[in-house]
Simulated scan of single mutants.
Amino acid sequence: MSNRKETPEEQRERLRQEELKNNPSGTFRDGLHRADNTNLADLVGGLGWKGTGILILVLIGGYFLYKLLF
């Protein structure tokens, strides 16, 4: 192994890959039902801080636009 510390994202991906190797049928079922079990932390983790900021701005702008029109 290398001497550098792995980031939390790299660690999650490594653990996910190990789980795929150890239990392919269980992870297949999880993949089918992923949309039912998703959460905000997964969304924010995938977007990064810039994407999260843009998402918040779009949601706030959409809310004000909705209130203005209706």
Results as ranks from 00 to 15, higher is better:
E10S: 14
F28D: 06
P24S: 03
V58T: 09
P24T: 02
N39I: 04
E18N: 09
S25K: 03
A35I: 08
N23S: 12
Y66V: 02
G46R: 15
N37W: 01
F64S: 00
L43C: 01
F28R: 07
Y63E: 00
L43T: 03
Y63V: 06
N3Q: 14
G61P: 03
L15E: 11
G51S: 07
L40G: 01
F64N: 00
E10K: 15
K67C: 04
A41D: 13
L47W: 12
K5W: 05
N22S: 12
S25Y: 05
I60F: 02
Y63R: 00
T7S: 12
G61Y: 06
V44Y: 08
G45Y: 08
L47G: 01
G31W: 08
R34M: 08
T38W: 03
N3S: 10
G26K: 07
P8F: 07
L68Q: 06
G31H: 10
M1N: 05
E18S: 07
H33P: 00
P24C: 01
P8V: 10
N37I: 01
E9D: 07
W49V: 02
I60M: 02
L68C: 00
R34Y: 11
N23R: 11
R16L: 14
R16P: 04
D30M: 11
I54R: 13
P24M: 01
L47S: 02
K50I: 15
E6P: 14
Y66Q: 05
P24N: 02
G45I: 03
F64M: 01
R12P: 02
G45P: 01
P24W: 05
F70E: 06
G31S: 13
G62P: 00
T38E: 09
L20W: 12
F64P: 00
P24K: 02
R14Q: 15
N37E: 08
Y66W: 13
N3R: 13
M1K: 07
Q17C: 01
M1Y: 07
G61M: 14
T52N: 07
S25Q: 07
G61H: 04
F70M: 12
G26P: 00
N22D: 09
K5H: 08
G31C: 06
N23E: 07
E19Y: 05
E19V: 02
Q17V: 01
T38A: 07
Q17H: 01
R12Q: 11
M1V: 15
L15D: 13
K67L: 12
R12D: 08
G46C: 08
R16H: 13
I56V: 13
L68S: 05
R16N: 09
N39V: 04
L15Y: 11
P24V: 03
T52K: 09
E6D: 06
G61E: 03
G26W: 11
